[in-house]
Structures are given as structure tokens and as C-alpha cells.
Design a protein around this nucleic acid. Structure first.
Lengths: 332, 332
DNA sequence: ATGAAAGCGCTAACAA
DNA sequence: TTGTTAGCGCTTTCAT
């Protein structure tokens, strides 16, 4: 092992005690200016850096937060993780990221690993891990599960009304036969998938029976949109609402490949407002996830929890519709 | 602080010494089957989990690798980070990720933080941080800088010949006026941007002077493609080669908005083969980064370095052209 | 095959 | 304002 310079070395050279050096670094006890300066110079000249493990062992704090996510590239979760990272750093924390690749086993491992003194708090973003499971695995380490209907989650984002917002927009453009690409993943906190509920609710509210031929279930990926677009068109859809942007992009791709003009012959709407919504042509009308707010509130909630403050009541965020170029009046 | 169960508690209940428990866990000393079983049962029933900080303080190992990257969402780096994460875990390491948001200051901070006993090794993916700088900040901690021409980097990927590959393809389709969107970011290890070199080299090889009106410099983002597409078309380009996929997507977007049909009226090629290359319509012809191989070789090199093995010689990977639907014969 | 005990490098309570 | 010292919870050498 490399003989690194330690706090006692600094103390010796500076002619003070280790605890003085420690306090110069932490700043939580008054130090005379001269001593402070001298210690800092010695630290500089010796190239001293505090040992992280020793520090956290002694102080019972790591200033680290563990985040478990299924993926980070090519999806809205990456944007979210980046935003959380930003807020964590603003509060002096570093992020330890566990990427699980949709394997629950990985997620559980990360939660266990993280909570054995590795971090001060955990953010669980894994859809298949419930609030209770996360809390159980993390034992005494403060844990926040991201975006669930469950009371203990600091923020919740109402996907049901998000879908309704988009459907109202399509309806106002004259669309009546609106295809819907649902998703099967239901999180453990809600019995049924919220976006599909929104779809069904909307049509009932409009005095219509939702047409089962216009409802298909995808896998959140581009391919689902591509595959189901044709089926929905054949079923008479003049517009397609997808449960996320990736599947909406798949629909656009199918349309392009089959000379179906968007939005003239087919309107397409997505959900999330992922970066890709702006990259495709035509740009995608979509329901926006307020990523920054979600990240901030989640991080803040965790930090309060770490500090032992009593949690605030759950906040419910209202979705916003972003109208771009993939939706238009129904063809007459 | 929470009174967590520690190794001595397990030892007491199991009627053995702490060191025996430790060895049951690590497996690096023979233990009698009965003792082993008893200890494991006690561990289970007490819900014991080793304290991470104490472990690394005593063992001088963290089994963690720090990765510094500018971004993770919406770019090829996220895919790469995910791939590295996979290989690291296969080797028993966890990843500590530092997202720097293109601020060099953040990068330096992460490198310093990581190398103060927080990780066993560091992977530097920040373009503006040179091999030397990274090594300096990380002191005695083994460090690998990702994808540089520099000798000490385990893999290198020849972008110059990658561009030439794509240009040969366009040339064979009859294109002679090929616009090029370069990028200004040059990494500290190479004096000039390699992709631009490739472009210039190609035309010289074809016995032509590269036309300066057909060369513009973008910022790696979609908007650059969008902005420069028009300029390059006006300069007579029948095809546009972009230095990355995002800018190529910007060109597609401009084309779509201006009723320029791709590839009938304009061919477009990108670089990287980011996920978005498959999401757009038409799908993008591009030069593929061998992400998985790059990730594996980089991770393996770091792990060897951690183990103190002598580094192997740098490996140079050959790019591959992926022909999709955004390139076609020049219009006659 | 197992135990005893000396640290790892730091923080924080207590003393001065 | 500063120093002394007792741990933090584990690994690992040395003994047995």
C-alpha cells in the first residue's frame, strides 16, 4: 500500500494536534488565524487529502446518496438522474449510482450494498421495488422511493390527468378514433396502470365506450410503436396516443416508412417529453414530466429525512401538455 | 446513531472470535463446516451486514471504481457508462459516477474526491482532462483515461479512418459535393480534430482540394445540424457528413421542415451510432463506435492496473460503417 | 482450525 | 483556543 500522508503527519509538521487539523478542515470550532494558515500551508505542501473511509467510520456520515435506477442512457431516467445529481451536489452530497438493467435482483443487491454504511440515504427509482421493500432492504438508512402514489413518497405526478390533457387536445382537433398504446408495467403502489385509466376515463366522460380495438399494450420501446401503429391505423385511428415518447417515436417511424404523413394523415402524441421528442421530425407533441421539480423535491425530501426532520405531506404535480408538430386537425 | 449489529455481536452469539466471523465472510482461511454453518445462521438471524467504511479502512480496498463523465443522458456516453458498469460489476466492483456537466472544475473535484481513498481506481472520460492531469489529480490511485491517442490509454478508436469510411460510401453513391460539420473540441492528446483530418485527407486522396465552403464547425448538438444544413445545401452539397449523430439528426430535422427529401434529395451520415440513429426517420447511416469492446477493454485495463499488472500495449480499434436509410444515390 | 490483539486514519467528547 | 484520548467496525498478522 502507498504510504499516504495522514492527518498526524500534517499535525506534526505544523506543530499542532491532529484534532486541530481536523477542525481546520471541518471548520466547526474556532481556530486562531495563524494556526489556521500554517496548517493549510502544510496541508498544501504535503499534498494531504483526508482518507474517506476513516472519515466516515469515525463520523458516521458518508455525505453520499445511493440512487438505484434501471437505466441511464436513452430514456427519461437518465435526465432525471442527472438532475438529482445536480441537487445532491448542491447540498454537499455525492451520488452513488446503481444501474440495474431491469433486473430486480440487481436492485435488491444495490439497496443492500448501499445501506451497509455506504451512503447516508437511498433513492429507489426501480418500478418493481415497492416502498415497503425498499425500506426493508435499507433498514435504518433513510430511503425515498421515487414517484409513487404511496403516502410516504414526497412527490407524485398525476399521469392519469396527463393522458386526459393530451386526449382533450386531440379531441379538440376533431379526433374521435384515438389509438392508445398502453404499457403493462404497473408499479406496486397502484393496482392498475394510470395512463390507461386516464384513457378509459376520458372516453367515458365524453359519453363513449372506449373501443378495445384501439387499445394495445407495448413494452415502452420504439419497436412497440412501430409494430402497433399499423394495427391501430387499420382499426381506424386518426390519432395515436402513446404511453411514452419512445413508442410515439416508433409510430412516427412506421408512418415515415409507409408514406403516412404526420400530422396531416395521422396525429401522434407521446408522454414524458424526453429529449428525443425534440429530435424527431416532426417534433413530438407530448405530456411533460416536470423533471427538475421532481428531482429537486425528491432530493430535498431525502435530505430532510437524513436530518431527521418530519416529512411533509405528499405533493401532487400537475402535468403540462407540450404541443409541437406531430398533432393536427383530423383529415376531413 | 442506530445501534447496528456488528461483527463482535455475531461472534459473541456464535461463540467464536470476530476474526473467525470475518473469515467465514471472506472465505480466505479454512473454517470447520460446523462453525461456518453456525456463524452463517447467526448472521442471518441477527441481520448482520458488514460496515463498509470499517471494511475499507482496515483492508485498504473499496471494490469501487470512480467514473467521471460529462453527461449520461441523451448521448453516447450514457451507453458507454452503462456498459462499463456492467463489466465492472462482473468483476466485483461497483461504480461511483461523477457527472460533470462539461465543467472542468467539477471533473477535477471528482478526481480528487475519488482518489482520496474512495475508490480503488478511476476512469476519466472528460475530454478536456488530459492523461497527465488525471494522473496528477489521482496521485497514487490507478487511473485510466478513456480513448486517447496517448500511449498509456488501453484502447484507441481511429476516428480519422471512420470518417473516411463514410465518405467512401457517399462517394460510391456518386456524391462529390459533401458538406462536413466538424466539431471544435480537440482533446489534449491530439493537436487537431481527427474527424476533420479524415475529411480533408479523403478529398486530397481523391485528387481534389477540400472545399472550405463545405466545411462548418458545430457544437455536437442537434441545433448545429439544423443551423448548418441550409448553409451547406446552398453551397451545393448533395450529402452532409456530421461529426456525430446528434448533428446529423439536426440535419434531418431541417430537411423535414423544408421538404427536402432524405435520401432522395440529400444524403446524411452521422458518427457514433448512438441510439437515436435508429430512432429517427429515415434511420441514420453512421460510423459505429464499438461501445461494448471499448468499455470492456477500458475496464479490464483498469482492473489489471489495480492488480499491479504491467499494462499491455495500446490497441487500436477499427471503425465500422452502418448503412441505413439516410444515404442514397446522388440525384441526377 | 481458531483466537488475541494491533492497527487502519479519522472524529468528537472531554480536559485544559 | 488547543490537546488528549477513546473509539468507529473491521482485517490481518502472529500465536496457538
Amino acid at each position: 500500500m502507498n504510504m499516504r500522508v495522514k492527518i498526524s503527519d500534517v499535525a506534526k509538521v505544523a506543530g499542532v494536534s491532529s484534532s486541530t487539523v481536523s477542525h481546520v478542515l471541518s471548520g466547526n470550532r474556532p481556530i486562531s488565524p495563524e494556526v489556521c494558515l500554517r496548517v493549510r500551508q502544510v496541508i498544501e505542501s504535503l499534498g494531504y487529502r483526508p482518507n474517506y473511509a476513516a472519515k466516515s467510520l469515525a463520523s458516521h456520515r458518508t455525505m453520499k446518496v445511493g440512487v438505484v435506477s434501471d437505466e441511464i442512457s436513452n430514456s427519461i431516467s437518465g435526465v432525471l438522474v442527472e438532475a438529482m445529481n445536480r441537487y445532491l451536489r448542491e447540498n454537499g452530497y455525492s451520488m452513488l449510482l446503481g444501474v440495474c438493467e431491469f433486473k430486480k435482483e440487481n436492485a435488491i443487491n444495490y439497496l443492500r450494498e448501499f445501506s451497509s454504511g455506504m451512503v447516508d440515504g437511498v433513492i429507489n427509482m426501480i418500478g418493481s421495488v415497492s416502498v415497503q421493500e425498499a425500506a426493508r432492504e435499507c433498514k435504518t438508512v433513510p430511503t425515498i422511493t421515487y414517484l409513487r402514489a404511496h403516502q410516504e413518497c414526497p412527490v407524485y405526478y398525476d399521469r392519469t390527468s396527463g393522458i386526459i390533457l393530451a386526449l382533450e387536445h386531440l379531441w379538440s382537433l376533431g379526433h374521435r378514433k384515438i389509438g392508445f398504446i398502453a404499457v403493462s408495467d404497473t408499479n406496486p403502489e397502484t393496482a392498475v396502470e394510470e395512463r390507461e385509466i386516464g384513457y378509459r376515463q376520458f372516453f367515458v366522460r365524453m359519453g363513449m365506450q372506449p373501443d378495445e380495438n384501439l387499445i394495445v399494450t407495448g413494452n415502452n420501446k420504439i419497436e412497440s410503436g412501430y409494430i402497433y401503429a399499423e394495427k391501430l391505423m387499420k382499426a381506424g385511428a386518426t390519432a395515436i396516443m402513446a404511453s411514452n415518447d419512445m413508442m410515439a417515436v416508433g409510430v412516427l417511424q412506421w408512418a415515415h416508412q409507409n408514406q403516412v404523413r404526420v400530422p396531416d394523415e395521422l396525429s401522434v402524441a407521446g408522454f414524458d417529453d424526453a429529449p428525443i421528442a425534440l429530435a424527431v421530425a416532426p417534433t413530438l407533441t407530448t405530456v411533460q414530466m416536470p423533471i427538475d421539480i421532481l428531482a429537486e423535491k425528491t432530493v430535498n425530501a431525502l435530505i430532510s429525512k437524513i436530518k431527521g426532520e418530519t416529512p411533509r405531506q405528499q405533493e401532487v404535480l400537475v402535468p403540462r401538455l407540450i404541443i409541437r408538430n406531430s398533432t393536427g386537425k383530423v383529415k376531413s
